[in-house]
């Protein structure tokens, strides 16, 4: 199998999206609220994937774009070829993490996702205080949102203790069988 074929087949089998459908009209980029913060706008990502070169694939996996994408679904909704770009972005993030080549600007976002998921893994639900604490440790950005804490507490928006579900094991099992034992970075 040629390199081009193998990469587009990989994208297709993991995301179900056939990037060859993209005819580069740019409608996705035109309506993207994050395009100005991306190193490659969405239609450019599609083009890089279309070339099928391993080099370009890695460019995409190392890009900032895939991490600033908000999955707002505007691009998919308006795409004349109905290409599910947000879904491709999900797949690219997963792959980027797997290869350990995520963009440095993504570290906060990744730290957020990891803190978020580790909370769920442990209690079955999101405990925001715990997540925030873990996130601060991961990013060492201890001051972020500190000013918010007193008012959040007074408005009853933070719970001091986590809610734990009864069947914690069920959720733990889901994590074990999907992401496996999480690799720390």
């Amino acid at each position: 199998m040629s390199e081009k074929k193998s990469i587009s087949t990989h994208v297709k089998s993991t995301s179900g999206v056939d990037v060859s459908h993209c005819y580069q009209c740019g409608k996705c980029t035109a309506g993207c609220v994050q395009a100005e913060r991306m190193d490659y706008p969405p239609q450019y990502i599609m083009r890089l994937l279309q070339t099928g070169s391993e080099e370009n694939y890695e460019k995409v996996l190392r890009s900032r774009s895939i991490w600033v994408c908000l999955n707002c679904e505007n691009c998919y909704e308006r795409c004349p070829q109905s290409i599910d770009i947000p879904h491709v972005m999900d797949m690219l993030r997963e792959e980027s993490l797997k290869r350990g080549i995520a963009h440095k600007d993504a570290s906060k976002i990744i730290a957020f996702h990891r803190s978020f998921l580790s909370q769920i893994k442990n209690t079955g639900r999101l405990w925001e205080v715990g997540m925030e604490a873990e996130y601060k440790l991961r990013t060492m950005d201890l001051m972020q949102d500190v000013k918010l804490v007193p008012s959040m507490l007074s408005k009853g928006k933070l719970s001091i203790l986590p809610e734990v579900i009864v069947d914690k094991a069920a959720v733990k099992k889901i994590f074990d069988r999907t992401v496996g034992v999480e690799k720390e970075k």
């Binding site: 993991t14 999955n71 999900d90 797949m91 993030r93 997963e94 993490l97 976002i109 957020f112 996702h113 990891r114 978020f116 998921l117 909370q119 769920i120 079955g124 639900r125 999101l126 579900i165 009864v166 069947d167 069920a170 959720v171 889901i174 994590f175 069988r177 999907t178 992401v179």
Partner: peptide
């Protein structure tokens, strides 16, 4: 009773399987 977090908005950014399994439960 005994619901778990659906994984939004982190699971789908990390693992497709996880993003389906949590809501599935």
């Amino acid at each position: 009773k005994d619901w778990n977090c659906c994984g939004a908005s982190s699971a789908h950014a990390v693992s497709k399987e996880l993003s389906l399994a949590l809501p599935a439960r």
